[in-house]
Structures are given as structure tokens and as C-alpha cells.
Amino acid sequence: MNVFRLAGDMTHLLSIIILLLKIRATKSCTGISLKTQELYVIVFLTRYLDLFTKYISFYNTTMKLVFLGTSISIVWYMRYHKVVKQTYNKDQDTFRHYFLAIPCFLLALLIHHEFTVIEVLWTFSIYLEAVAILPQLVLLQRSRNIDNLTGNYVFLLGAYRALYLVNWVYRYFTENHLVRWIPWLSGLVQTTLYADFFYYYIKSWKNNEKLQLPA
């Protein structure tokens, strides 16, 4: 494992910790899209089916279990915690899951490495992860006030895949020129979706102003 991949994983982990911290400490999930969080549960459940079939490393197994556990607990808080669920912006979080999930599934049926259940679901999870942030970005655009924890959460979540892109370039040159179009192109799409958010996040940080996305 190289330093870029490790930095990417740590950024991803940190983003989730910040989100859980926000939910637990402030007892509020204002500004967080339940649709996006549910899509991440689907992403992790379909990607980590190989937990049962192959072992890569202690690190991989532990991280997979942490991502599964934390994503499920975030959804649990937002749907069932008696205080937290009242802070959920249901009326603004209207993006439909299936607009994203169905096309990703069809694409995975068409473009994959191997036509097996595990492989198609893995590919589906890569495609779905690329676009799963969309409901969250739509919700942020509709929010008048984006609190710091929410802004930092989305920033770190976007930075994670950008670091993976660097990791893939590094691996290409150091590991026998392995080519992996499916994650590469999906990761590129995923990072591009954040471009606009990154611009306003950095601008607000430099000017020391409150983050707000133009409608």
C-alpha cells in the first residue's frame, strides 16, 4: 500500500468520524442527505461481499467492517433516533434513489470484468459510489446554512477519491502497468462531481466566510 492510498482511506475514515461526531454531539443531522447515506450502505454491502470469499489483509477486513458498521449506524440514527430523526430535512431531501441505482445496475450488467454475481455487484458498487453524493450536493444547494461539520464532511469525502486517483497513477507506474478502467473512470467522475463544491469550500475558507453554495 502506498502513501496516497493510505491518505485516501484515512480521509474517508475521518469524513465518517466527523459525520458521526456531528450526529452524536449535536444530536442533529441537519444538512445531511439520508438518500446519500442509504446509497453508501448499498455501496458497501454490494462491494464487500468478498469479505466472505477472500482475505486480503487484516487492514482491509477491519476497514471494510468499519465502513459497513458506521454507514449502517448513520442511517439508523437518521431514521430511528428519536431526537436526531426530527432534525432531518426530509422536505428538501427529495432525490430519488432509483434514478441513480437502476442506471448504475444496468451499466454494471453491461460493463464488468466477469459475469458473476460478486463481480457484477462489485462493479455496480463502483458506479453507484461515483454518483451517490448527488442527493447530498442537491441538499447542500438548498440549505441556507451549511454548518462547518457538514462542509468539512463533504470536503473530506470528495478529497478521498481524489487521493485514490493519485494512488492509481502511482500504482500504474510502480506495479507492472496494471490497467483498471472501471474504477479509474468512475473515480474520475466521482471527483469531478465535487469540483464545484471544492471551489466554494476553498473560497469560503480563504475569505473566512460562511460556506454557501449558489442556487
Binding site: R5, D9, H12, D50, I56, N60, M63, K64, F67, H113, E114, E119, W122, Y164, L178, V179, R180, W181, I182, P183
Partner: peptide, 10 residues
């Protein structure tokens, strides 16, 4: 440019 199947990332 053959795709390598290599799922060792998260």
C-alpha cells in the same frame, strides 16, 4: 490495454 481484475482496495 487489458483490464486487470484486482480488488485489493476499499
Amino acid at each position: 490495454f487489458q483490464e486487470t481484475k484486482f480488488h485489493d482496495e476499499l
